[in-house]
């Protein structure tokens, strides 16, 4: 069980305190698929960054029943290393941690899973957007994560590619059962994927809706459409609570002269 207790994140911007996340309590059962929805700047990406360990909470704590879980993270942009081939990118997180033979085997398995085995020697420049996103997914999966975090991973893709990758993600989750936290502002995507949809606004969780629908799901299914409409109604109801823009000045990278989190956090 992954538990978030009183998890909060505040920033100080020009001597003004900004609350990005306000004491969130959340319990995620192992193997669950939780989708966090909300408007831009509602704190959902901050929540994901805290779960990924990319930033430290100001208040509260995160605990996992099995100590520190293995985390895999898929970002909105694929974030592939241009100097590495697809194989190099997928195995990036394993280098130095497991034997080369095992890296090769796990990379091959992950590439087969996302359908990129034929492109193992390609460089990121040579991939389409959908293929690059799949490499990003494979890079996270190869770590065999107990906790898989996805921050709007398919947002920049066309509808056709997005639908295909949503199906692939569901299949992978059903096969491996990691605990998934998926952030999106697309409510249809949320109900297609989730066990439970968590609705955030103003840095708080303001609603939770289970999605007790069988898989595979169809976006035109009546129950799914009704659920989608209900969540959209929830979102409309919370339109008044606009969060403040946030910047993370707390964790400067010592050798980059720039805050690696700054761009992400300042995105409204």
């Amino acid at each position: 069980m992954l538990e978030l207790r009183g998890l909060g994140k505040r920033y100080t911007v020009r001597e003004r305190e900004v609350v990005a996340l306000a004491e969130v309590d959340l319990a995620l059962p192992p193997g669950s698929f939780t989708v966090v929805v909300g408007r831009s700047g509602c704190g959902k990406s901050t929540l994901l960054r805290l779960l990924a360990g990319l930033t430290a909470p100001t208040t509260g704590e995160i605990s996992h029943s099995r100590g520190r879980p293995t985390v895999g993270c898929v970002f909105q942009e694929p974030r592939l290393m241009p100097w590495l081939t697809v194989t190099g990118n997928v195995g990036f997180g394993l280098v130095g941690k497991v034997a080369k033979v095992e890296i090769a085997a796990r990379v091959e398995a992950a590439l087969a899973l996302v359908g990129l085995a034929d492109f193992r020697h390609a460089y990121p420049d040579q991939l389409s957007g959908g293929m690059a996103s799949r490499v990003g997914l494979a890079r996270a999966l190869v770590l065999e994560p107990e906790l898989l975090l996805l921050d709007e991973p398919f947002a920049a893709l066309d509808a056709f590619t997005r639908r295909g990758l949503q199906g692939e993600l569901t299949d992978i989750w059903l096969a491996r059962r990691p605990t998934v936290v998926f952030v999106t502002h697309d409510v249809e995507e949320a109900v297609l994927l989730a066990d439970e949809v968590v609705h955030m606004d103003g840095g708080r969780i303001i609603g939770r809706r289970p999605v007790p629908l069988p898989r595979p799901r169809d976006a035109t299914d009546r129950e799914l459409v009704a659920l989608r409409r209900a969540i959209l109604d929830d979102l409309s109801g919370s339109a008044g609570r606009r969060p403040q823009p946030a910047q993370d000045f707390l964790h400067r990278d010592p050798f980059l002269h720039r805050d690696p989190f700054l761009q992400q956090e300042t995105t409204p």
């Binding site: 990924a52 360990g53 990319l54 985390v71 895999g72 993270c73 970002f75 942009e77 974030r79 290393m81 990036f92 997180g93 941690k97 890079r139 770590l143 990278d253 050798f255 980059l256 002269h257 720039r258 805050d259 690696p260 989190f261 700054l262 761009q263 992400q264």
Partner: peptide, 17 residues
């Protein structure tokens, strides 16, 4: 080149521990 390294790539490394 060092100063302009994409911080998002550094984050990938951080997530990989």
């Amino acid at each position: 080149g060092i100063a302009q390294c994409d911080p998002k790539l550094v984050e990938v490394g951080r997530v990989c521990g």
